[in-house]
């Protein structure tokens, strides 16, 4: 996934497609809030990852979190 206008265009297209698909199902305000609170971070993350692929992610903090326990349990 490297920087390219086509990539951003495709992702935006897909995002719009998703929205169109779900528009009818978002009946009340609560569902709308939930939907967009997932949708917007997702969309921004997608664009961010295209521009900056090496974003540090959950893996980075999970490893050190479990490392001491892993060393304890796991000899090899």
């Amino acid at each position: 996934m490297n920087l390219s206008k086509t990539h951003i265009a495709v992702v935006t297209l897909v995002a719009i497609g998703m929205l169109l698909f779900d528009w009818r199902g978002l009946t009340d305000i609560r569902t709308k809030i939930a939907y967009f609170s997932l949708y917007i971070p997702g969309f921004t993350l997608a664009i961010l990852l295209i521009i900056y692929p090496n974003l540090p992610g959950p893996v980075q903090w999970m490893r050190p979190l479990f490392a001491p326990l892993a060393k304890l349990l796991f000899k090899s």
Partner: peptide
């Protein structure tokens, strides 16, 4: 309604 946003997040997480 939550299915598609979660799927999008899944695709992204698989690369992040």
């Amino acid at each position: 309604p939550l299915v598609l946003p979660i799927s999008m997040i899944m695709v992204l997480l698989s690369y992040w």
